[in-house]
Design a binder for these strands. Sequence first.
DNA 1: TAATCAACCTGCTAGC
DNA 2: TGCTAGCAGGTTGATT
Length: 282
Amino acid sequence: MPELPEVEVVRRGLDRHVIGRTITAVRVHHPRAVRRHDAGPADLTARLLDTTITGTGRRGKYLWLTLGPDAALVVHLGMSGQMLLGPVPNENHLRIATLLDDGTTMSFVDQRTFGGWVIADMVTVDGTPVPVPVAHIARDPLDPLFDREAVVKVLRGKHSEIKRQLLDQTVVSGIGNIYADEALWRAKVNGARRASALSRPKLRELLDAAAAVMTDALGQGGTSFDALYVNVNGESGYFDRSLDAYGRAGEPCRRCGAVMRRDKFMNRSSFYCPRCQPRPRT
DNA sequence: TAATCAACCTGCTAGC
DNA sequence: TGCTAGCAGGTTGATT
């Protein structure tokens, strides 16, 4: 599932190939892929045609292609979105296709249709220009301007579970279910503990763990459990071989040897070590 | 205001 | 063999 490292891999791939390229053709194959573009598919198509891509950007799981100084094409990969340059292996899930002026096709493929494209104006938030749909998203741990102490302060004021807060993109962005479990394992924190009950040093350790695990994943091209996450060339990452928590229920903890557990949490799975990460007393 | 939860969606797997 | 239910999970809007 695309989280921050996977989205960054895609952004870097696009950055190498599409800057300076002009879009010469657009076809929206599935209207749901542009459902957040209020003006509709025809408007999105018209606004992209003959437009030159001037840069790329990312915050958390959102990435965008800047279309001059005032607008951007915002892309969210959802759970299964892919930005592909070149041939599309399986057109069953092709949602949007574009042609660039060098003859390259740039396609949006999305099996589960949670992702999408939207063209938006740029606004400046805390000194950084971002597209409007991204304005409410907090900085991610790999952002050079990420303010760890400010996030610790926010978390200290939250009375719900720490994992819920890690997944809240308005608190800290880029973290999804996989990296939340990995960061919690590294920091030896159970995700069911209340954020406000954790000490400031432990919260710092947790945020540092989140940054570290995502940096490690980025170095290995991201995590991939199946063909749903690929880079712009259709290749999968390798970080799933390095996961310490996610998907390891029933296997021994790599730190203490206890049998890893899986609990249901927020309609999804949480993987943790019952010895290193004991559940809070109810 | 903060916290919680359902809905969206499709492909795969397990169970019957 | 075919059907059904459950599961995966990011985001948003509704509800508590």
